[in-house]
Write a protein that binds this DNA or RNA. Structure first.
Lengths: 183, 183
DNA sequence: CGCGACGTTGATTTGCCTCAACGATTGTGG
DNA sequence: CCACAATCGTTGAGGCAAATCAACGTCGCG
Protein backbone atom coordinates (compact mmCIF):
# COMPACT_ATOMS: atom_id res chain seq x y z
CA UNK A 1 0.00 0.00 0.00
CA UNK A 2 1.14 3.53 -0.71
CA UNK A 3 2.10 6.10 1.91
CA UNK A 4 -0.98 8.08 1.03
CA UNK A 5 -3.23 5.12 1.67
CA UNK A 6 -1.62 4.29 4.97
CA UNK A 7 -1.75 7.94 6.02
CA UNK A 8 -5.45 8.13 5.20
CA UNK A 9 -6.20 4.94 7.04
CA UNK A 10 -4.20 5.57 10.20
CA UNK A 11 -5.51 9.12 10.51
CA UNK A 12 -8.97 7.58 10.95
CA UNK A 13 -7.97 5.17 13.69
CA UNK A 14 -8.97 5.98 17.23
CA UNK A 15 -6.74 4.78 20.05
CA UNK A 16 -8.25 3.53 23.33
CA UNK A 17 -7.08 1.78 26.47
CA UNK A 18 -9.38 -0.87 27.90
CA UNK A 19 -9.31 -2.25 31.42
CA UNK A 20 -9.60 -5.94 32.20
CA UNK A 21 -13.26 -7.01 32.07
CA UNK A 22 -14.29 -3.79 30.38
CA UNK A 23 -16.84 -4.16 27.58
CA UNK A 24 -16.46 -2.60 24.17
CA UNK A 25 -19.62 -4.28 22.86
CA UNK A 26 -22.71 -5.57 24.67
CA UNK A 27 -25.90 -7.37 23.71
CA UNK A 28 -28.32 -4.88 22.19
CA UNK A 29 -25.61 -2.51 20.91
CA UNK A 30 -24.90 -1.88 17.27
CA UNK A 31 -21.30 -2.69 16.50
CA UNK A 32 -19.89 0.68 15.35
CA UNK A 33 -16.21 -0.21 15.00
CA UNK A 34 -13.77 -2.59 13.50
CA UNK A 35 -11.23 -3.03 16.31
CA UNK A 36 -7.52 -3.73 15.96
CA UNK A 37 -5.67 -5.06 19.02
CA UNK A 38 -2.31 -3.40 19.57
CA UNK A 39 -1.57 -4.94 22.96
CA UNK A 40 -3.55 -7.23 25.25
CA UNK A 41 -6.37 -9.63 24.49
CA UNK A 42 -10.11 -9.40 23.76
CA UNK A 43 -12.83 -12.02 23.42
CA UNK A 44 -16.06 -12.18 21.36
CA UNK A 45 -18.80 -14.36 22.88
CA UNK A 46 -22.48 -14.87 23.52
CA UNK A 47 -24.34 -15.80 26.68
CA UNK A 48 -26.97 -18.51 26.44
CA UNK A 49 -30.31 -18.76 28.26
CA UNK A 50 -28.59 -20.52 31.18
CA UNK A 51 -26.06 -17.72 31.58
CA UNK A 52 -23.22 -19.78 30.11
CA UNK A 53 -20.68 -17.96 27.93
CA UNK A 54 -19.64 -19.40 24.55
CA UNK A 55 -16.58 -17.85 22.96
CA UNK A 56 -16.51 -17.25 19.21
CA UNK A 57 -13.12 -15.62 18.92
CA UNK A 58 -10.09 -14.39 20.81
CA UNK A 59 -8.11 -11.40 19.54
CA UNK A 60 -4.59 -10.75 20.82
CA UNK A 61 -1.89 -8.53 19.27
CA UNK A 62 -2.39 -7.72 15.56
CA UNK A 63 -5.84 -9.30 15.31
CA UNK A 64 -9.00 -7.58 14.13
CA UNK A 65 -12.26 -8.17 15.94
CA UNK A 66 -15.86 -7.09 15.37
CA UNK A 67 -19.38 -8.44 15.19
CA UNK A 68 -19.35 -8.46 11.40
CA UNK A 69 -23.08 -9.05 11.10
CA UNK A 70 -24.02 -6.15 13.34
CA UNK A 71 -21.33 -3.90 11.86
CA UNK A 72 -22.39 -4.20 8.22
CA UNK A 73 -26.14 -4.54 8.57
CA UNK A 74 -26.35 -2.14 11.55
CA UNK A 75 -28.56 -4.49 13.52
CA UNK A 76 -28.55 -5.07 17.27
CA UNK A 77 -25.94 -7.57 18.32
CA UNK A 78 -26.47 -10.53 20.59
CA UNK A 79 -22.75 -10.76 21.31
CA UNK A 80 -20.29 -9.28 23.76
CA UNK A 81 -16.69 -8.15 23.39
CA UNK A 82 -14.60 -7.54 26.49
CA UNK A 83 -10.98 -7.61 27.61
CA UNK A 84 -9.20 -10.52 29.27
CA UNK A 85 -6.24 -8.25 30.04
CA UNK A 86 -5.53 -4.53 30.06
CA UNK A 87 -5.67 -3.85 26.35
CA UNK A 88 -4.76 -1.16 23.82
CA UNK A 89 -6.83 -0.93 20.66
CA UNK A 90 -7.29 1.08 17.49
CA UNK A 91 -10.82 1.45 16.19
CA UNK A 92 -12.15 2.56 12.81
CA UNK A 93 -15.74 3.68 12.33
CA UNK A 94 -17.85 2.25 9.56
CA UNK A 95 -18.19 5.48 7.51
CA UNK A 96 -14.40 5.91 7.52
CA UNK A 97 -13.84 2.31 6.53
CA UNK A 98 -16.35 2.56 3.70
CA UNK A 99 -14.69 5.74 2.50
CA UNK A 100 -11.35 3.94 2.51
CA UNK A 101 -12.89 1.10 0.48
CA UNK A 102 -14.15 3.51 -2.15
CA UNK A 103 -11.04 5.70 -2.35
CA UNK A 104 -8.52 2.88 -2.23
CA UNK A 105 -9.58 -0.48 -3.64
CA UNK A 106 -6.54 -2.10 -2.02
CA UNK A 107 -8.25 -1.71 1.37
CA UNK A 108 -11.24 -3.41 -0.01
CA UNK A 109 -9.03 -6.32 -1.03
CA UNK A 110 -7.27 -6.42 2.34
CA UNK A 111 -10.52 -6.60 4.25
CA UNK A 112 -11.95 -9.10 1.80
CA UNK A 113 -8.98 -11.39 2.36
CA UNK A 114 -9.33 -10.87 6.09
CA UNK A 115 -12.89 -12.13 6.11
CA UNK A 116 -12.17 -14.92 3.66
CA UNK A 117 -9.45 -16.24 5.91
CA UNK A 118 -11.69 -15.95 8.93
CA UNK A 119 -14.41 -17.79 7.01
CA UNK A 120 -12.11 -20.66 6.10
CA UNK A 121 -10.89 -20.91 9.70
CA UNK A 122 -14.49 -21.01 10.90
CA UNK A 123 -15.29 -23.82 8.49
CA UNK A 124 -12.43 -25.85 9.92
CA UNK A 125 -13.78 -25.17 13.37
CA UNK A 126 -17.25 -26.40 12.42
CA UNK A 127 -15.75 -29.59 11.01
CA UNK A 128 -13.81 -30.08 14.24
CA UNK A 129 -16.88 -29.47 16.36
CA UNK A 130 -19.01 -31.98 14.52
CA UNK A 131 -16.29 -34.58 13.93
CA UNK A 132 -13.77 -34.62 16.76
CA UNK A 133 -13.61 -35.41 20.46
CA UNK A 134 -12.95 -32.78 23.10
CA UNK A 135 -9.35 -33.95 23.44
CA UNK A 136 -8.71 -33.56 19.71
CA UNK A 137 -10.27 -30.11 19.74
CA UNK A 138 -8.06 -29.09 22.63
CA UNK A 139 -4.92 -30.33 20.90
CA UNK A 140 -5.89 -28.46 17.74
CA UNK A 141 -6.40 -25.32 19.78
CA UNK A 142 -2.96 -25.66 21.37
CA UNK A 143 -1.42 -26.16 17.95
CA UNK A 144 -3.29 -23.26 16.36
CA UNK A 145 -2.86 -20.71 19.15
CA UNK A 146 0.28 -21.65 21.11
CA UNK A 147 0.77 -18.04 22.18
CA UNK A 148 -2.64 -18.01 23.90
CA UNK A 149 -2.49 -21.31 25.77
CA UNK A 150 -0.35 -20.15 28.68
CA UNK A 151 -1.79 -16.69 28.65
CA UNK A 152 -5.54 -16.98 29.00
CA UNK A 153 -7.39 -18.94 31.73
CA UNK A 154 -8.30 -22.55 30.99
CA UNK A 155 -11.91 -21.66 31.67
CA UNK A 156 -11.85 -19.50 28.55
CA UNK A 157 -10.26 -22.19 26.40
CA UNK A 158 -12.87 -24.67 27.61
CA UNK A 159 -15.60 -22.23 26.63
CA UNK A 160 -14.05 -21.80 23.18
CA UNK A 161 -13.85 -25.51 22.43
CA UNK A 162 -17.28 -26.19 23.88
CA UNK A 163 -16.64 -28.17 27.05
CA UNK A 164 -16.74 -27.54 30.80
CA UNK A 165 -13.62 -26.33 32.66
CA UNK A 166 -13.71 -29.46 34.82
CA UNK A 167 -13.56 -31.72 31.82
CA UNK A 168 -10.71 -29.75 30.27
CA UNK A 169 -8.80 -30.21 33.51
CA UNK A 170 -9.30 -33.96 33.25
CA UNK A 171 -8.20 -33.99 29.61
CA UNK A 172 -5.00 -32.17 30.51
CA UNK A 173 -4.29 -34.54 33.36
CA UNK A 174 -4.82 -37.46 31.04
CA UNK A 175 -2.52 -35.98 28.39
CA UNK A 176 0.28 -35.28 30.85
CA UNK A 177 0.06 -38.85 32.15
CA UNK A 178 0.25 -40.19 28.61
CA UNK A 179 3.31 -38.09 27.78
CA UNK A 180 5.11 -38.95 31.03
CA UNK A 181 4.40 -42.65 30.49
CA UNK A 182 6.25 -42.43 27.17
CA UNK A 183 9.52 -41.33 28.80
CA UNK B 1 -27.01 -3.86 -11.48
CA UNK B 2 -27.05 -2.50 -15.00
CA UNK B 3 -27.90 -4.51 -18.11
CA UNK B 4 -24.29 -4.27 -19.20
CA UNK B 5 -23.07 -5.76 -15.95
CA UNK B 6 -25.55 -8.59 -16.03
CA UNK B 7 -24.73 -9.29 -19.67
CA UNK B 8 -21.00 -9.43 -18.91
CA UNK B 9 -21.52 -11.70 -15.96
CA UNK B 10 -23.94 -14.18 -17.50
CA UNK B 11 -21.86 -14.47 -20.68
CA UNK B 12 -19.11 -15.93 -18.50
CA UNK B 13 -21.30 -18.52 -16.83
CA UNK B 14 -20.92 -22.13 -17.94
CA UNK B 15 -23.95 -24.39 -17.75
CA UNK B 16 -23.59 -28.04 -16.70
CA UNK B 17 -25.83 -30.93 -15.75
CA UNK B 18 -24.70 -33.14 -12.91
CA UNK B 19 -25.96 -36.63 -12.15
CA UNK B 20 -26.82 -37.82 -8.66
CA UNK B 21 -23.61 -38.74 -6.75
CA UNK B 22 -21.42 -37.07 -9.36
CA UNK B 23 -18.50 -35.05 -7.97
CA UNK B 24 -17.66 -31.53 -9.05
CA UNK B 25 -14.83 -31.23 -6.50
CA UNK B 26 -12.71 -33.90 -4.83
CA UNK B 27 -9.95 -33.95 -2.22
CA UNK B 28 -6.68 -32.86 -3.82
CA UNK B 29 -8.32 -30.71 -6.51
CA UNK B 30 -8.01 -26.98 -6.72
CA UNK B 31 -11.44 -25.37 -6.66
CA UNK B 32 -11.62 -23.59 -10.03
CA UNK B 33 -15.23 -22.41 -9.97
CA UNK B 34 -17.79 -20.55 -8.01
CA UNK B 35 -20.93 -22.65 -8.63
CA UNK B 36 -24.52 -21.44 -8.74
CA UNK B 37 -27.29 -24.03 -8.37
CA UNK B 38 -30.13 -23.55 -10.83
CA UNK B 39 -32.00 -26.76 -10.02
CA UNK B 40 -31.25 -29.71 -7.74
CA UNK B 41 -29.04 -29.91 -4.67
CA UNK B 42 -25.31 -30.15 -3.91
CA UNK B 43 -23.37 -30.75 -0.72
CA UNK B 44 -19.91 -29.63 0.51
CA UNK B 45 -18.26 -31.98 2.99
CA UNK B 46 -15.08 -33.61 4.23
CA UNK B 47 -14.29 -37.23 5.06
CA UNK B 48 -12.46 -37.92 8.32
CA UNK B 49 -9.80 -40.55 9.06
CA UNK B 50 -12.54 -43.08 9.90
CA UNK B 51 -14.27 -42.55 6.57
CA UNK B 52 -17.16 -40.59 8.10
CA UNK B 53 -18.56 -37.67 6.09
CA UNK B 54 -19.16 -34.30 7.76
CA UNK B 55 -21.27 -31.83 5.82
CA UNK B 56 -20.34 -28.14 5.81
CA UNK B 57 -23.04 -26.85 3.51
CA UNK B 58 -25.98 -27.78 1.33
CA UNK B 59 -26.77 -25.77 -1.81
CA UNK B 60 -30.19 -26.03 -3.42
CA UNK B 61 -31.81 -23.64 -5.94
CA UNK B 62 -30.30 -20.12 -6.03
CA UNK B 63 -27.40 -20.90 -3.70
CA UNK B 64 -23.73 -20.41 -4.41
CA UNK B 65 -21.23 -23.05 -3.38
CA UNK B 66 -17.41 -23.32 -3.51
CA UNK B 67 -14.44 -24.17 -1.36
CA UNK B 68 -13.62 -20.53 -0.76
CA UNK B 69 -10.20 -21.24 0.69
CA UNK B 70 -9.07 -23.37 -2.23
CA UNK B 71 -10.68 -21.04 -4.78
CA UNK B 72 -8.94 -17.84 -3.68
CA UNK B 73 -5.58 -19.20 -2.55
CA UNK B 74 -5.42 -21.88 -5.26
CA UNK B 75 -4.41 -24.56 -2.79
CA UNK B 76 -5.41 -28.22 -2.83
CA UNK B 77 -8.75 -28.78 -1.19
CA UNK B 78 -9.52 -31.38 1.44
CA UNK B 79 -13.24 -31.16 0.69
CA UNK B 80 -15.73 -32.74 -1.68
CA UNK B 81 -18.72 -31.36 -3.55
CA UNK B 82 -21.23 -33.75 -5.09
CA UNK B 83 -24.89 -33.91 -6.03
CA UNK B 84 -27.70 -35.32 -3.90
CA UNK B 85 -30.07 -35.09 -6.88
CA UNK B 86 -29.75 -34.58 -10.64
CA UNK B 87 -28.63 -30.98 -10.67
CA UNK B 88 -28.20 -28.06 -13.08
CA UNK B 89 -25.50 -25.53 -12.33
CA UNK B 90 -23.82 -22.40 -13.66
CA UNK B 91 -20.12 -22.01 -13.00
CA UNK B 92 -17.83 -18.99 -13.23
CA UNK B 93 -14.07 -19.34 -13.39
CA UNK B 94 -11.82 -17.35 -11.12
CA UNK B 95 -10.22 -15.14 -13.83
CA UNK B 96 -13.67 -14.16 -15.11
CA UNK B 97 -14.90 -13.42 -11.62
CA UNK B 98 -11.84 -11.32 -10.83
CA UNK B 99 -12.33 -9.41 -14.09
CA UNK B 100 -15.92 -8.76 -13.13
CA UNK B 101 -14.78 -7.48 -9.73
CA UNK B 102 -12.36 -5.04 -11.35
CA UNK B 103 -14.66 -3.82 -14.12
CA UNK B 104 -17.79 -3.57 -12.01
CA UNK B 105 -17.33 -2.81 -8.32
CA UNK B 106 -20.94 -3.71 -7.72
CA UNK B 107 -20.03 -7.39 -8.22
CA UNK B 108 -17.34 -6.98 -5.69
CA UNK B 109 -19.94 -5.72 -3.26
CA UNK B 110 -22.40 -8.50 -4.08
CA UNK B 111 -19.81 -11.19 -3.45
CA UNK B 112 -18.56 -9.46 -0.35
CA UNK B 113 -22.08 -9.42 1.09
CA UNK B 114 -22.47 -13.05 0.09
CA UNK B 115 -19.46 -14.11 2.09
CA UNK B 116 -20.29 -11.83 5.01
CA UNK B 117 -23.69 -13.42 5.30
CA UNK B 118 -22.19 -16.88 5.05
CA UNK B 119 -19.69 -15.91 7.73
CA UNK B 120 -22.36 -14.71 10.12
CA UNK B 121 -24.39 -17.87 9.52
CA UNK B 122 -21.33 -19.98 10.25
CA UNK B 123 -20.75 -18.12 13.51
CA UNK B 124 -24.28 -18.95 14.57
CA UNK B 125 -23.65 -22.56 13.70
CA UNK B 126 -20.49 -22.66 15.82
CA UNK B 127 -22.41 -21.21 18.75
CA UNK B 128 -25.11 -23.84 18.28
CA UNK B 129 -22.57 -26.63 18.07
CA UNK B 130 -20.81 -25.66 21.27
CA UNK B 131 -23.89 -24.62 23.22
CA UNK B 132 -26.94 -26.67 22.24
CA UNK B 133 -28.15 -30.26 22.39
CA UNK B 134 -28.65 -32.41 19.30
CA UNK B 135 -32.42 -31.93 19.52
CA UNK B 136 -32.06 -28.13 19.58
CA UNK B 137 -29.70 -28.24 16.63
CA UNK B 138 -32.15 -30.37 14.68
CA UNK B 139 -35.03 -28.02 15.41
CA UNK B 140 -32.91 -25.05 14.34
CA UNK B 141 -32.07 -26.86 11.12
CA UNK B 142 -35.75 -27.53 10.41
CA UNK B 143 -36.56 -23.91 11.06
CA UNK B 144 -33.68 -22.60 8.94
CA UNK B 145 -34.06 -24.92 5.97
CA UNK B 146 -37.69 -26.10 5.85
CA UNK B 147 -37.42 -26.66 2.08
CA UNK B 148 -34.62 -29.19 2.62
CA UNK B 149 -36.04 -31.26 5.45
CA UNK B 150 -38.37 -33.42 3.38
CA UNK B 151 -36.12 -33.44 0.38
CA UNK B 152 -32.75 -34.76 1.50
CA UNK B 153 -32.13 -38.05 3.37
CA UNK B 154 -32.06 -37.90 7.17
CA UNK B 155 -28.58 -39.39 7.07
CA UNK B 156 -27.39 -36.16 5.44
CA UNK B 157 -29.10 -33.93 7.98
CA UNK B 158 -27.57 -35.98 10.79
CA UNK B 159 -24.15 -35.51 9.24
CA UNK B 160 -24.74 -31.76 8.98
CA UNK B 161 -25.73 -31.30 12.61
CA UNK B 162 -23.01 -33.62 13.85
CA UNK B 163 -24.85 -36.70 15.13
CA UNK B 164 -25.41 -40.29 14.00
CA UNK B 165 -28.41 -41.20 11.81
CA UNK B 166 -29.62 -43.58 14.52
CA UNK B 167 -29.73 -40.84 17.10
CA UNK B 168 -31.53 -38.46 14.75
CA UNK B 169 -34.15 -41.15 14.25
CA UNK B 170 -34.63 -41.35 18.01
CA UNK B 171 -34.87 -37.57 18.33
CA UNK B 172 -37.59 -37.47 15.67
CA UNK B 173 -39.53 -40.26 17.32
CA UNK B 174 -39.30 -38.43 20.60
CA UNK B 175 -40.47 -35.15 19.05
CA UNK B 176 -43.44 -36.75 17.31
CA UNK B 177 -44.50 -38.40 20.56
CA UNK B 178 -44.29 -35.07 22.37
CA UNK B 179 -46.40 -33.30 19.74
CA UNK B 180 -49.04 -36.05 19.60
CA UNK B 181 -49.26 -36.08 23.40
CA UNK B 182 -50.25 -32.42 23.24
CA UNK B 183 -53.34 -33.09 21.14
C1' DC C 1 -36.70 -60.63 -8.33
C1' DG C 2 -32.79 -59.26 -5.33
C1' DC C 3 -29.74 -55.86 -3.90
C1' DG C 4 -28.44 -51.46 -1.92
C1' DA C 5 -29.84 -47.27 0.36
C1' DC C 6 -32.47 -45.66 3.98
C1' DG C 7 -34.83 -45.50 8.33
C1' DT C 8 -36.05 -47.70 12.84
C1' DT C 9 -35.43 -50.00 17.22
C1' DG C 10 -33.12 -51.98 21.26
C1' DA C 11 -29.08 -53.17 24.31
C1' DT C 12 -24.92 -51.65 25.83
C1' DT C 13 -21.07 -48.51 26.36
C1' DT C 14 -18.74 -44.18 26.72
C1' DG C 15 -17.77 -39.22 26.55
C1' DC C 16 -18.89 -35.47 28.80
C1' DC C 17 -21.73 -32.93 32.31
C1' DT C 18 -23.30 -31.82 37.00
C1' DC C 19 -22.54 -31.02 41.55
C1' DA C 20 -19.77 -30.62 45.47
C1' DA C 21 -15.61 -30.02 47.85
C1' DC C 22 -11.07 -28.41 48.30
C1' DG C 23 -6.14 -26.02 47.53
C1' DA C 24 -3.55 -22.32 45.44
C1' DT C 25 -3.17 -17.86 43.81
C1' DT C 26 -4.46 -13.18 43.16
C1' DG C 27 -6.03 -8.87 44.39
C1' DT C 28 -8.27 -5.64 47.15
C1' DG C 29 -9.99 -2.94 50.99
C1' DG C 30 -9.30 -1.90 55.79
C1' DC D 1 0.69 -5.11 55.23
C1' DC D 2 -2.42 -8.28 56.50
C1' DA D 3 -7.06 -10.54 55.99
C1' DC D 4 -10.48 -11.96 53.41
C1' DA D 5 -12.94 -12.65 49.13
C1' DA D 6 -12.91 -13.87 44.50
C1' DT D 7 -10.94 -16.39 40.77
C1' DC D 8 -8.95 -20.37 39.02
C1' DG D 9 -7.69 -25.12 38.65
C1' DT D 10 -8.24 -29.92 40.42
C1' DT D 11 -10.50 -34.14 41.91
C1' DG D 12 -14.20 -37.51 42.63
C1' DA D 13 -18.99 -39.56 42.53
C1' DG D 14 -22.85 -40.08 39.98
C1' DG D 15 -25.89 -39.23 35.96
C1' DC D 16 -27.28 -38.34 31.31
C1' DA D 17 -26.71 -37.56 26.23
C1' DA D 18 -25.12 -39.57 22.40
C1' DA D 19 -22.28 -43.29 20.13
C1' DT D 20 -21.77 -48.05 18.91
C1' DC D 21 -23.25 -52.34 17.32
C1' DA D 22 -26.51 -55.43 15.61
C1' DA D 23 -30.81 -56.68 13.71
C1' DC D 24 -34.69 -55.86 10.96
C1' DG D 25 -38.39 -53.59 7.72
C1' DT D 26 -39.19 -50.89 3.66
C1' DC D 27 -38.73 -48.97 -0.57
C1' DG D 28 -36.96 -47.94 -5.22
C1' DC D 29 -34.29 -49.52 -8.87
C1' DG D 30 -31.19 -52.29 -12.05
Amino acid sequence: MSDEEIEFFTSNLNFRKIRRRQYILQEGDICKYYTFVNKGCLRLYNVDENGVEHILQFAAEDWWIADIGSFYSETHTSLYIDALEPTEIFQIEKPDLIEAFIKYPSFDRVFRVLIENAFVALQKRVLQNIGSTAEERYLTFVESYPQLVNRIPQTQIASYIGITPEFLSKIRKNLSQKSSAKS
